[in-house]
């Protein structure tokens, strides 16, 4: 069980309010991702849940019990740190066994659980090595192993993949998702990478400057972003924003249209512009269009085979049902 409720939780460091009062519910078994640009307070929020920082006001409940003033160890939460935070002087086996040793489990039980975790994480051959002798991905797995042996109420991940290279990151992302499916335990995951958020989350919490901008499933956030910030943060490449006359036509201060919702052709379309850069990814091609008279740059996604070059004039056709409309404050207009 692991239902985490934040009830008007806030945090100040001295005079600086890093997190204004926040309400948030993370359901049991849910994979919740806190995402936002660096400095948005997502890590602080995670540390508040972990108990590594005190809340300034409000209440944190885990499975209905008030955990606000409990020590980290008493919250039945396990955490995987950005730097992995492995104990360098202990073997992998001892690292994984450490929380069990602290919990005063008997030796046979410890051995059994360590062996299980090692098998799940493909670490069996490395149990007698020290962290210094492992690769980044292996260290990451040891850190996860140390977390799962405790059978915690919830897992907390603090940007766990940011120290890995790109290829490994994709692999570990899948492994963590798979682990979540298998364990069906609540996971709270902090990242600045919206791709990680979109691919892994059941529920995404978008944060900016300590505020929750929006909470919802990846597709909700993608389809109906509540404001310009969320619209711009979720989705890759970024949504195009257009102000002025074109927006006024739609009865909005700003309109947004995603690159994948604009068709590009050499013949005709309501908008036109000149290709500045084309990025060929093989499966897709991204065109960065200048001189459209709408915005400085419009980004458009096309099929991988479409081959416009720098300087070509192209015509753009946005899909009318895919416009997002925002008012002068940046809020969504339904």
């Amino acid at each position: 069980m692991g239902r985490i409720v934040l009830d008007k939780v806030s945090k100040r460091f001295g005079d600086v309010e890093v997190i204004p009062p926040i309400d948030l519910v993370i359901e049991d078994g849910e994979f919740a991702v806190f995402v936002g640009p660096s400095g948005c307070g997502k890590s602080t929020l995670l540390r508040l849940i972990a108990g590594l920082e005190d809340v300034t006001s409000g209440q944190i409940r885990i499975d209905g019990n008030d955990a606000t003033n409990l020590a980290p160890a008493q919250r039945r939460l396990a955490m995987v740190f950005q730097s992995y935070a492995l104990y360098p002087h202990m073997t992998v086996r001892k690292n994984i066994a450490f929380p069990l040793r602290m919990a005063k489990l008997d030796k046979a039980e410890i051995d059994k659980r360590v062996a299980n975790a090692a098998a799940v994480l493909n670490l069996t051959d490395y149990l007698d090595r020290r962290p210094g002798q492992l690769s980044g991905g292996q260290r990451q797995r040891v850190a996860i192993g140390r977390a799962i042996v405790r059978e915690p109420a919830a897992f907390l991940f603090d940007e766990p993949l940011s120290n890995l290279d790109a290829a490994l990151r994709v692999g570990m992302r899948l492994e963590i998702s798979e682990l979540h499916k298998r364990l069906a335990t609540t996971m709270v995951y902090v990242t600045h990478d919206q791709v990680e958020a979109m691919t892994m989350a059941d529920k995404i919490v978008v944060l900016r400057a300590g505020h929750i901008e929006q909470v919802g499933s990846p597709l909700e956030l993608y389809r109906t972003p509540r404001n310009i910030f969320v619209a711009g943060f979720i989705g890759s490449p970024r949504m195009n924003f257009i102000e002025g006359a074109e927006a006024a036509k739609h009865g909005a201060h700003t309109i947004g249209i995603r690159p994948e919702h604009i068709a590009v052709s050499s013949e005709a379309g309501p908008w036109s512009g000149v290709v500045a850069v084309s990025e060929h990814l093989g499966s897709d091609t991204f065109f960065h269009i200048h001189d459209s008279g709408l915005a400085e740059t419009l980004t458009v996604r096309a099929d991988g085979e479409v081959g416009f070059r720098h300087g070509d004039r192209v015509y753009l056709t946005p899909r009318d049902d895919q416009f997002h409309r925002f008012d002068a404050k940046g809020l969504r207009i339904e």
């Binding site: 980290p72 104990y87 602290m102 140390r146 405790r150």
Partner: peptide, 14 residues
């Protein structure tokens, strides 16, 4: 690194 001590704290070490 302080994170290692925090990890120990999360792991239930007094």
């Amino acid at each position: 690194p302080g994170e290692i001590l925090e990890a120990a704290r999360m792991d239930g070490a007094t």
